[in-house]
Write a protein that binds this DNA or RNA. Sequence first.
DNA 1: GATGAATGAGGTTTCATTCAT
DNA 2: AATGAATGAAACCTCATTCAT
Lengths: 206, 206, 206, 206
Amino acid sequence: MPNSKKTTAVQPAPGRRRELLATAAEVFAAHGYNATTVRRIADRAGLLAGSLYYHFDSKESMLDEILTGFLDELWAGYDAVLAAGLGPRETVESLVVESFREIDRHLWAVTIYQKEARHLATQPRFAYLAESQARFEEVWLGTLERGVAEGVFRPDLDVRLAYRFLRDTVWVAASWYRPDGDRTPEEIARHYLSMVLDGITLPADR
Amino acid sequence: MPNSKKTTAVQPAPGRRRELLATAAEVFAAHGYNATTVRRIADRAGLLAGSLYYHFDSKESMLDEILTGFLDELWAGYDAVLAAGLGPRETVESLVVESFREIDRHLWAVTIYQKEARHLATQPRFAYLAESQARFEEVWLGTLERGVAEGVFRPDLDVRLAYRFLRDTVWVAASWYRPDGDRTPEEIARHYLSMVLDGITLPADR
Amino acid sequence: MPNSKKTTAVQPAPGRRRELLATAAEVFAAHGYNATTVRRIADRAGLLAGSLYYHFDSKESMLDEILTGFLDELWAGYDAVLAAGLGPRETVESLVVESFREIDRHLWAVTIYQKEARHLATQPRFAYLAESQARFEEVWLGTLERGVAEGVFRPDLDVRLAYRFLRDTVWVAASWYRPDGDRTPEEIARHYLSMVLDGITLPADR
Amino acid sequence: MPNSKKTTAVQPAPGRRRELLATAAEVFAAHGYNATTVRRIADRAGLLAGSLYYHFDSKESMLDEILTGFLDELWAGYDAVLAAGLGPRETVESLVVESFREIDRHLWAVTIYQKEARHLATQPRFAYLAESQARFEEVWLGTLERGVAEGVFRPDLDVRLAYRFLRDTVWVAASWYRPDGDRTPEEIARHYLSMVLDGITLPADR
DNA sequence: GATGAATGAGGTTTCATTCAT
DNA sequence: AATGAATGAAACCTCATTCAT
């Protein structure tokens, strides 16, 4: 996305939309999509409810745009990691770090995704959520299986269970993470990783 | 499950309430509390929407009853564990096992809790959710701190992070757990614990 | 649903629906479907706008029911005429008489049909309107062609033009016909027929 | 059609209004006045909805201008016929021919008129519609009565019924007439007249 | 215990219109 | 002449809840 402030004037009028979407995302995240009234978004954005429809087709299309915006960036990040051809452990580490970065950048979208994805995925318009989730599972499961096969992860690992464990563990962080905290997403990711990879007990304990 | 269907049948309506609550819980869990219409519950239960009001004051009171029913049992279980005076590691293990048992028994209630607790807790009627969560945090944090102090857990553990990690890890399981699966809650709990306590990598890797 | 009104108990609850539909039809006819607000119907019927939705799915479904009710009866009448196997002239006469009877019985539905059928027919839900119209044309055109072939109608008759002429001529009557007038539908039909069949000029003029 | 596109191009906007009105008329005719959104007209004309308000006061004023434009020309034509002092039969013939010519030239306006005149006539702004209709009735009824009195039309003619018959018969043609068809308005008028004046049956039948 | 009918508040959306630029 | 953004009223519809029967 070209952002050369100073020379070009390519943007048709991206500003207002983006602001409104940010507001909508925040309110959706706070109260849930269904419980959020279009009027609440409008109030927060400083215009009347009906005026939102100049910018968006519907409440649903706002949600759509928020989720696709997030997923597009997420997969860009993931694909870059996967393209690097790392070993299983390093892949897991990089994916987790990348995930925390996305939480940092798309906190509200992640929150919404967590709460709404499951039932939205059943609607045709949001079928891409199901697709994304399927690919997600594929990537993680593959990495874990490779790790077990290569002796990097424990041979007795229940891969499906570990997948859910990792997936939930990471994304649920959106429920308490605040971007203005005193730790960077990378720091939090590292700490998470040390627990996930090595456990919380002292090695001596084993 | 006390179900003494043996003596009389003159009772005013002992089991009907319970049935209706079970139905309501299932629908709430499937679609979310707000998105669930009273009519959907009634349809599923085989009566008309208005007729539910003979049994319950309001939709909200159904939710209330579902959540308190769950929390009461949960704390009964937790208190029993805590009263046993176990060491930190064993306490963690027992609490996790107990949690999975509650997921097994109150799957829908747990699902609802996960989705709705945060914003419900702000309403006076559901203040007990906030209290419960505070006590929950207290118990877990205390156990973890004790474990670090006693050298059972790693000294570099970020206790708050580990708390959230454990908490989320356990409860999120409600999103995929099905009581009719081929593993008992205890088995799943054990596997979870082995990941959490010892990590997913091979010890040799360290 | 105990409804043993001593003798028959066949009606499930047809009364209210029918009343409301009659009211809706009248208002639709008076102001046009689109221009009619659901509130106007409700006001006239003596309840609140939202209450209509206890009886009907939507404003559109009211319209649907009104139109199908009319068309079903219309075709019952037409089919009876066609089954009689009359000659072309008598068929035309009977169809016209039957049409005026339907105008008398379904005045509002006919009025609505006249105003809305064309654009409604393009919507899938109202595809039956197009079908009905196609069959209508088939019946009339067939009768007229038969009449020309048998020497009953003028050989120089433009059959398509005559069809439209007859069709419009009859149905447009709904725009001024009032059931409480001093002439029966049959009388009016007869007068129409004498104009259509024999012209308005004096035979001597030819 | 004065179209002196030869001198200058400094005019404020002579043809633009006319173009926009033509577009509006077409859309009004296609979807009905109420169902037509100002945006639909603007889309078709290639500008934004708000921009129409530079040219017109309101949607209603567009309608107004369309209808008066049509009625003015119609009455110019009718008045010319009436001024000719023809006999009843010839007057009827000329009026019908003139009407078909107006349908040819003002197809969309006629269509709109047919659909909307009745309820518009109740609004003060469109009172001229009621006046026009009254004069219309006066002219036709007078001609028919004169024809009966002079023995040109059948003595048993119900003049009011015949008036409606003629009126509807003519104008309803706008619902199927297409200017680019293979017959001129005059030809169609002649055929209509032969049906109306002499009937559709063979004279021998009488 | 349950039904049928209704209420009333509030939700999303549409749309003619305005106005600064 | 036209745009982009917004207004405000009103539309259709939903839904928890009530209540006489």
